[in-house]
Lab assay of single mutants.
Amino acid sequence: ITFYEDRAFQGRSYETTTDCPNLQPYFSRCNSIRVESGCWMLYERPNYQGQQYLLRRGEYPDYQQWMGLSDSIRSC
């Protein structure tokens, strides 16, 4: 899974293949995501807390595409 700070896969990015309890050191906001394979559970707060979103393989050019309430993703 790759997270992008800006919409349409622009700006600083961070890629991971494992669970991350705290994504804050890698980016300040998340406006687009690419899921290369599988399913990922994302959380608005660190340590798997807050609103959660299940994303399947695909491209999400805007946080509203995954029904996000904000551009805050802090763990996965």
Score class of each variant (00 low, 15 high):
L55H: 00
R57L: 08
W40A: 13
E44Y: 04
S28A: 09
M67A: 09
G68Y: 14
L23G: 01
S70Y: 13
P21H: 04
N22K: 14
D6K: 14
L23A: 04
Y63Q: 05
M41I: 03
F27D: 00
E44G: 12
G58V: 00
W66D: 05
F9R: 01
L55S: 01
E44M: 15
G50P: 01
L42T: 06
R74S: 13
D6W: 03
S70I: 14
Q49E: 15
S72P: 09
R7D: 04
T18E: 10
T18M: 10
E5T: 04
R57G: 13
R29C: 14
C76L: 14
P21A: 09
F3K: 00
R34Q: 09
Q10N: 06
L23Q: 00
M67T: 10
D71I: 06
T18K: 07
C30S: 12
Y14H: 05
R34K: 07
S28E: 14
S37V: 14
Y43E: 00
M67N: 07
D62Y: 09
E15S: 11
R57A: 13
S75Y: 02
Y60F: 04
E15C: 06
G38A: 10
Q49D: 09
D62Q: 07
E59C: 15
S72A: 05
R34P: 01
L69E: 12
Y14V: 03
Y43F: 04
S37Q: 05
Q24W: 13
E44K: 09
L69H: 08
E15K: 15
S13P: 10
Q51E: 10
C39E: 08
N22L: 13
S75G: 07
M41N: 05
S28M: 12
I73T: 13
S72I: 11
E44T: 03
I73S: 02
Q64G: 08
Y63V: 06
A8K: 15
I73M: 15
I1V: 09
R57F: 13
E44H: 05
S75H: 00
R34G: 02
V35F: 01
L42Q: 00
G58N: 12
S72Q: 07
M67D: 06
G68D: 08
P21V: 10
R7N: 13
G68V: 11
R56M: 15
D62W: 13
R57C: 15
Q64E: 12
S72N: 12
P21L: 09
Y53Q: 06
Q64L: 07
V35Y: 01
Q49F: 03
Y60H: 03
Y53E: 05
G68F: 02
D6M: 15
L69Y: 11
G68T: 14
G11L: 02
T17L: 06
Q10A: 14
C30E: 00
R45Q: 05
W66R: 09
Q64I: 09
P61Y: 10
Q10R: 07
L69N: 08
R74V: 15
S37T: 12
C30A: 14
Q64V: 10
F9W: 09
S37R: 11
G38D: 15
L42A: 06
D62M: 09
R57W: 05
C39G: 14
E59F: 09
Y4N: 01
N31R: 10
P25M: 11
L54R: 06
Q52I: 06
L54E: 11
F3Y: 00
P21E: 07
G50I: 01
G50Q: 01
R57E: 14
D62I: 03
C39A: 08
Q49W: 03
D6C: 14
R34I: 03
R74M: 11
T17S: 08
Y4H: 02
Q52R: 07
W66V: 12
P61S: 11
Y26L: 13
Y53I: 15
L54I: 05
C76V: 13
L42N: 00
R7Q: 11
T2C: 08
Q65A: 11
S75L: 13
Q64R: 08
R34Y: 06
R56P: 05
S70A: 12
G68A: 11
R34A: 12
S72F: 15
Y14P: 00
E36I: 04
S32D: 01
G58Y: 11
R56A: 10
I33V: 06
I73G: 03
R45E: 07
L55N: 01
S13V: 13
I73F: 07
C39H: 10
R12H: 10
Q10Y: 06
M67R: 11
R57K: 13
M41W: 13
Q65P: 12
T2E: 02
D6A: 06
Q24M: 03
S37E: 05
S28V: 09
R56E: 11
P21W: 08
G58I: 02
Q24I: 08
M41E: 13
G68Q: 10
N22V: 12
G58F: 02
R12P: 08
D71H: 06
W40P: 00
I73C: 13
E15A: 06
R29F: 15
Y4K: 00
D71M: 05
D19S: 06
I73N: 01
Y43P: 00
T18I: 09
S13I: 12
S37H: 05
P21T: 11
S75C: 13
T18W: 12
S32Q: 00
R45G: 14
R74I: 12
S75D: 01
Y63E: 05
S37K: 14
L55E: 01
P25W: 15
N22M: 05
R45C: 05
P61N: 09
P61L: 07
S13N: 12
T17Q: 13
C76A: 13
S13F: 04
F3Q: 00
L42F: 11
Y26Q: 07
P21N: 15
W66E: 14
F3L: 09
G11M: 02
T2I: 14
D19L: 13
S37M: 09
T17D: 05
E5P: 05
Y4R: 00
R57H: 11
Q65R: 09
S13C: 08
R12C: 07
Q10E: 09
T17V: 10
M41P: 00
Q52D: 15
Y48R: 02
T2V: 13
Y14M: 15
Y48I: 01
L55R: 01
Y53H: 15
F3T: 01
S28F: 13
Y60L: 03
I73A: 13
L55A: 02
C20N: 15
N22A: 09
Y43N: 11
Y53T: 05
N31L: 03
W66Q: 13
C39Q: 06
Q64W: 10
W66M: 06
Y53M: 11
Q49L: 12
R56S: 02
V35T: 07
Y43T: 03
S70F: 08
Y4M: 02
S70W: 13
Y43R: 00
P25A: 11
L54D: 05
E44R: 11
R12M: 08
G11H: 02
G38T: 04
R45I: 04
F27K: 01
P21Q: 12
S28T: 11
D62G: 10
Y26A: 14
L55Y: 09
Y43G: 01
L69V: 12
R7W: 07
E59N: 04
F9G: 05
P25Q: 08
Q24L: 15
Q24D: 15
S28P: 06
M41L: 08
F3G: 00
W40V: 14
F27V: 07
M67S: 08
A8S: 10
S70P: 14
Q10H: 15
S37F: 12
E15T: 12
R56K: 10
E44W: 02
R7F: 07
D62K: 08
N31V: 08
Q49T: 12
C76Y: 01
Q51W: 05
Y14L: 06
